[in-house]
Design a protein around this nucleic acid. Structure first.
Lengths: 218, 218
DNA sequence: AGAATGGGTGAACATGCGTTCACCGAAACT
DNA sequence: AGTTTCGGTGAACGCATGTTCACCCATTCT
């Protein structure tokens, strides 16, 4: 069926994929800003010039990688959100969320390491795009949290600050998980820690306006 | 007094400083892995070869920058710890800690951006050193927390996980603060958020073993 | 069947890179 | 005073980089 039919657009798309994969792999131990066109071309098996048929520059390639990574990440977030509907317990929400994160990072640690790296080290345009995407995640999380019971009286600022804290913690978790490099014991340790951290944060948040004074020691 | 006495070791030290400063400045918009010896030499005003009189390689330079940054950071942590002795309230501890962090990042944002960047993007040896230093910070924080009242019955794991969470949040805060680029309003917003986040985490931690079940909704 | 399209080629360029080496000259020793 | 030390010099090397250009030829369109 799929035999003998490598149409032109298919071949182009295949080469494009190969470039994206090679780039993700090659900048693994450095950064986009230290990645060279010729390196990528050699890895893919094309001549340097052919690269320009697909991307304007390395930075352009980087933006494509960011978009691709976040498409996958949004799919993960949708999965978590779907699970939430059927699991109204906070503990269950935390467990399922961390489980989903663990699975996803396990299957895409290249992409996660990429965004964790280029978020701080990439070319300005790439950094800006990643920052923007993460802010979108924070905002979405904020509206999710606002739908949970017991958060009605919260200010928008507190909601945003809490989302930011959770996202920061989860980015850190994803980073640590990707660094675990697929070793199941290491991944388990990271996800256990993440569960504890998320629970602590949620407990803190739920006792936030309702009675933070009780918890200070004076 | 200090006139007419540029002794040889002084001159060497001065050049070394100039190299370190130039490197910190030059890799600001990329990374150590994309920094070239010749760039640094040109910026400093010496010939490329002279670089080798001071460092074996760019990576060696990077390690020196890491050490320097963490010397400063440890000084800050000591300052925070000193303040804590005179301020036994949790709220006060949080306020003073964030204040100190704000001041320090304001005065050293170059160094903070450097470690935030190279932590994920630097050469392997640099990444490893930074990771190690951060782990030391987490451990020290854990012992500090263990000295606070109400944490006696905590497990070592939970302590470590809590420290890790706080350090992650503070690294994120430092990153955001350094990105604020010295604008006072932006810095204020970041430090306000950091205070809220720290309080939330502490409230969560204090209610952790004592009664986490009260806070779940089932 | 014939023309147009477009991904891939290969040579060529100017530039920048890390590293080597012999050398200089002033400060630091004896 | 004579010698050693050593930070800085400048030429030279072999190599990798981004980008240009004219060209090729199988697929696609007419």
């Amino acid at each position: 069926m799929s035999e003998q039919a490598p149409t032109r657009v298919e071949k182009k798309e295949r080469t494009r994929r190969a470039i994206l994969d090679a780039a993700l792999d090659l900048c693994e131990d450095s950064s986009l800003v230290a990645l060279s066109l010729r390196q990528v071309a050699k890895e893919v098996g094309i001549v340097p010039t052919a690269f320009y048929r697909h991307f304007d520059s390395i930075e352009d390639l980087g933006l494509a990688l960011v978009d691709e990574s976040f498409v996958a990440l949004r799919a993960m977030l949708r999965a978590i959100r779907r699970n939430d509907d059927t699991a109204p317990t906070f503990t269950a929400i935390v467990d399922r969320s961390v489980d989903t994160l663990e699975q996803h990072v396990h299957g895409h640690h290249g992409q996660f390491r990429f965004i964790a790296r280029e978020r701080t080290a990439g070319p300005p345009a790439v950094k800006a795009r990643i920052r923007h995407e993460i802010e979108l995640c924070e905002r979405e999380l904020a509206t999710d949290i606002a739908r949970l019971p017991g958060t009605d009286h919260w200010s928008a600022e507190d909601l945003q600050v809490l989302s930011s804290l959770i996202v920061t913690a989860m980015v850190g978790t994803a980073e640590a998980m990707a660094d675990a490099g697929g070793r199941p014991d290491a991944e388990k340790r990271v996800s256990d820690a993440a569960r504890t951290q998320l629970r602590m944060v949620l407990i803190g948040a739920l006792n936030w306006r309702s009675g933070p004074a009780d918890s200070t020691q004076e």
